[in-house]
Structures are given as C-alpha cells and as structure tokens.
Computed example of a mutant assay.
Amino acid sequence: MKVAVSACLLGENCKYSGGSNRCERLLEQLARHPEIEVVPVCPEVAGGLPTPRPPAEMVDGHVVNNQGVSVDAAYRRGVAHEMGRLRAAIDAGDLAGAVLQSRSPSCGVHQVYDGTFQGVLVPGRGLFADALSKAGVQLFDVADL
C-alpha cells in the first residue's frame, strides 16, 4: 500500500521559504506502519520552481506569486509530473491516499490563501489536491491528523 505525502512534511527543504514543514506526528504515525510505502511529492519543485522562491497564492484559479508574476504554468507542469509518477498506483488501486500540506496552492485540501497575500483563507483546494481528488484519491490535510 502506498501513500503520497507532501515532501515538506517529511522534512525535505522544498517549502517556498527554503525550509520544511516537518511533521513529527505524521512521521511517528508512518513509522508505526512499515507496510505503508511513502511516496514523497512536491509539485512546485517538480514543476521547476526553485527553493527558496517567492510565495504564491491562488487568484481566480491561477497561481501568482507575491510579485504579481504568474507561476501557474510551473505549478500545472508539476501537478502533471507528480500525477504521472502516481498514475500506475492510482490505476492499480495501490494508492491508499495522500497526506498534504495545508493551505498550499498545490496541496491545500480544505482551504487556500485568497491571492491578496494578507493571510486570508478561502474554501478551496490546491491544484495538485484537486487533481488527486478527481482521480479518486482520498485526501488528508496534515492539520487534521
């Protein structure tokens, strides 16, 4: 059984700020289940974005950074890449779910930032979370663990 996990939650320094969102609670839970194969995913890096990079938010369904530059193509390229990596497991029913970073324009499960760069959250999913959901993958927001 496989579970896709946002790489930043596993401690990989791929977050926009150059750090990670390492989640000890998640790592402890995964360690208790050695039968689970963890598949680290990071659509931003897979799409060719550097680390660190300017923060980005969703604006009318498109991803734009805080300098007003569209990074939507890179985000969508990364989503396509990561979905391609997961496709065989999804098709075979081997991907039990995905644990994703909250509020991200890629991975947000319940909410994303509204594009004003003022910390305002709105209901919605990031691009990668949306693609996984449409493929029938069960999503888990790390904040819900």
Rank of each mutant, 00 (worst) to 15 (best):
M1C: 09
M1D: 11
V5H: 07
C8R: 00
C8L: 13
L9K: 08
L10S: 01
L10I: 06
E12K: 14
E12F: 15
E12I: 08
C14G: 10
K15C: 14
K15V: 02
G18N: 13
G19N: 09
N21P: 02
E28L: 13
Q29W: 14
A31P: 05
H33S: 14
P34Y: 12
P34G: 10
E35V: 04
V39N: 06
V41T: 13
E44Y: 02
G47M: 02
G48W: 06
L49E: 04
P50V: 11
R53S: 01
R53Q: 08
E57M: 04
E57W: 03
M58E: 05
V59W: 13
G61L: 07
V63Y: 07
V63R: 07
N65T: 07
G68V: 10
V69N: 13
S70W: 07
Y75K: 05
R77T: 12
G78R: 00
V79K: 05
A80G: 03
A80S: 12
H81C: 14
H81Y: 13
A88D: 15
I90W: 02
I90M: 09
A92G: 03
G93S: 06
G93Y: 10
A98R: 03
L100C: 02
Q101A: 12
Q101K: 15
R103V: 05
S104Y: 06
Q111S: 13
V112D: 03
V112E: 00
Y113F: 14
F117P: 03
F117R: 06
Q118I: 01
Q118D: 12
V120S: 12
V120Q: 15
V122C: 05
R125T: 06
A129Q: 07
A129N: 08
A131G: 11
L132I: 05
A135V: 06
G136T: 04
G136V: 02
L139F: 11
F140W: 15
V142G: 05
